[in-house]
C-alpha cells in the first residue's frame, strides 16, 4: 500500500504493508534509525516523532496513516553540524547516559518548547513523564529542557 508524506522537509513515497508501523517505516524503509523502539506498546516514548507539530508515538501509528502528514524526527532537529540549542543543553547538563531514550526526549521536548517556551519545571516533568529514561533519574533532563527554553523564546521572538 502506498503512502506519501514529508519527512524532515523532504517528500517521500513508500509502498509498504499496512501493518508496518511508522517507526519501522522510518527506521527500516527510510534509514532514519535515530527513532528508537524501546517497547513497541506505547509506554516508553523512545519512538516519539513530531507529526504536524505534535509529538506522537511512532510505534502506535501505522506508516499508511501518515499519508499526507509532515513528520520530523531527531535527525530533522539536528543542524548540519554540531548541536541545536536543545541538544547542547542536554550535553551540558549530562542529560543522557546510554542515549537510547534520548531521541524521544529531544523530539518531545522540542514539540513542547515550540508550543510552550515558558513551560515550568512541573509542566516539563509532566510532559516528559511519557518518556522513560533508565539512566539519568530525569533530574538533568529537566534541567536541560528548562535551560533550552531561552532559545525557543528567542526563536518565537524572531519569527
Amino acid at each position: 500500500m502506498k503512502a506519501a508524506f514529508e519527512v524532515n522537509g523532504e517528500s517521500v513515497e513508500v509502498d509498504v504493508e499496512p501493518r508496518l508501523s511508522l517507526a519501522d517505516c522510518l527506521r527500516d524503509v527510510l534509514g532514519l534509525t535515530g527513532t528508537h523502539l524501546g517497547c513497541e506498546h506505547g509506554v516508553c516514548g523512545a519512538c516519539t516523532v513530531i507529526v504536524d507539530g505534535q509529538a506522537v508515538r511512532s510505534c502506535l501509528t501505522l506508516a499508511v496513516q501518515a499519508d499526507g502528514e509532515r513528520i520530523t524526527t531527531v535527525e530533522g532537529l539536528s543542524p548540519e553540524a554540531g548541536l541545536s540549542p536543545l541538544q547542547a543543553a542536554f550535553r551540558k547538563h549530562h542529560a543522557l547516559q546510554c542515549g537510547f531514550c534520548t531521541p524521544g526526549m529531544v523530539t518531545t521536548a522540542h514539540a513542547l518548547l515550540s508550543e510552550e517556551p515558558d513551560a515550568d519545571a512541573d509542566r516539563v516533568r509532566e510532559v516528559l513523564s511519557g518518556n522513560i529514561c533508565r539512566c539519568t533519574g530525569y533530574v538533568p533532563i529537566v534541567e536541560a529542557v528548562l535551560e533550552a527554553r531561552a532559545a525557543y523564546r528567542k526563536m518565537e521572538g524572531e519569527s
Binding site: 539536528s78 548541536l83 550535553r91 531521541p103
Partner: peptide, 12 residues
C-alpha cells in the same frame, strides 16, 4: 559520545 547520540546518529 553525546555528539552522535543527541543527533540520532548512534549505532545501536
Amino acid at each position: 559520545e553525546d555528539l552522535r547520540l543527541l543527533r540520532g546518529r548512534g549505532q545501536f
